[in-house]
């Protein structure tokens, strides 16, 4: 097994993908953190009822620091998916399976090899969110709240959520293997379809508990704040349950991929 993991680690480290996506993610997280910090402090903060929105300093800081996860999760997600799909896109899967014909082992090795990178994406996202968000908050005259335990808990949760999204990517990449299809599909689902489903579920009380288990909702639950939950439209799972659900999606997708695409003939 360690040989298979070493092989997968070398595959990741010998192409530009991991750091290119990491760099793009860092830029995206920094951008969102600054935009949220400035928009929520300097923008028009009048609510729909004409009263000024009262945003607590800690809530403001949390929103700024976790903005990355709400949107930049697509980078670790794409990274995870591509480390599987690129083998099919470039047809290198035959070489891999000639050297290691035990296909379940190949999938497991990919999941395990992705973990250090998953954590790296999470750590960089959290670090960049603070590095860009705190000065922006300070500049706008708001408190950075860096002494607040709740903020540090949320940053830790950011690391966990980003890491989990990476493994979701690996899992779905295994199940779908079509590079563009799986990435676009996951983004369309989490950004477009799922919010609509959750919105609809909000009007139908029987569906609301189920909506909490959708992947986007689970991802938000890990960090504990987001657009959709802040809007009060949906209730979220506890953070630990959200993390388990999210990891569950990744592992179930990987298992489906093992039983379907990886069962297929490689021709």
């Amino acid at each position: 097994m360690s040989a298979a993991i070493r092989s997968e680690l070398r595959k990741i480290l010998t192409t530009r993908l991991w750091w290119a996506l990491l760099a793009m993610m860092a830029v995206a997280v920094a951008f969102f953190a600054v935009v949220f910090a400035l928009a929520l402090t300097l923008g028009d903060t009048t609510g729909p009822d004409g009263q000024p929105l009262a945003i607590e300093p800690s809530h403001l800081a949390l929103t700024v620091y976790t903005a990355g996860v709400s949107l930049a999760y697509v980078f670790p997600l794409a990274f995870g998916a591509i480390i599987v799909t690129s083998e099919f896109r470039h047809r290198t899967i035959a070489t891999t399976l000639l050297a290691e014909p035990r296909r379940a082992r190949v999938i497991t090795a990919k999941l395990l090899a992705a973990i250090p990178f998953a954590l790296l994406y999470g750590l960089v996202a959290a670090a960049v969110a603070v590095a860009a968000g705190a000065p922006a908050l300070a500049l706008a005259g708001a408190e950075t709240m860096l002494g607040d335990a709740e903020v540090w808990r949320a940053l830790g949760a950011t690391v966990a959520a980003m890491a989990a999204w990476t493994l979701v990517g690996v899992g779905f990449g295994t199940a779908v293997t079509h590079q563009v299809g799986v990435i676009v599909g996951l983004i369309v689902w989490t950004q477009l379809v799922e919010p609509l489903v959750r919105l609809a579920a909000g009007f139908w009380s029987a569906a609301a508990p189920i909506a909490r288990f959708l992947p986007g909702a689970a991802g938000e639950a890990v960090v504990g704040t987001s657009f959709y939950s802040a809007s009060g439209l949906a209730t979220l799972l506890p953070a630990w349950a959200g993390l388990l659900v999210l990891l569950g999606y990744g592992l179930v997708a990987a298992a489906i991929g093992w039983r379907t695409t990886f069962r297929h003939d490689i021709s």
């Binding site: 040989a3 298979a4 092989s7 010998t14 993908l17 470039h90 047809r91 070489t95 290691e100």
Partner: peptide, 19 residues
């Protein structure tokens, strides 16, 4: 079939642990 972004030596190094 090879990943176009990998060097020849790196390609071999990705397979090497398995064999």
């Amino acid at each position: 079939a090879f990943h176009p972004g990998r060097t020849a030596l790196d390609h071999l190094r990705t397979v090497a642990p398995l064999v």
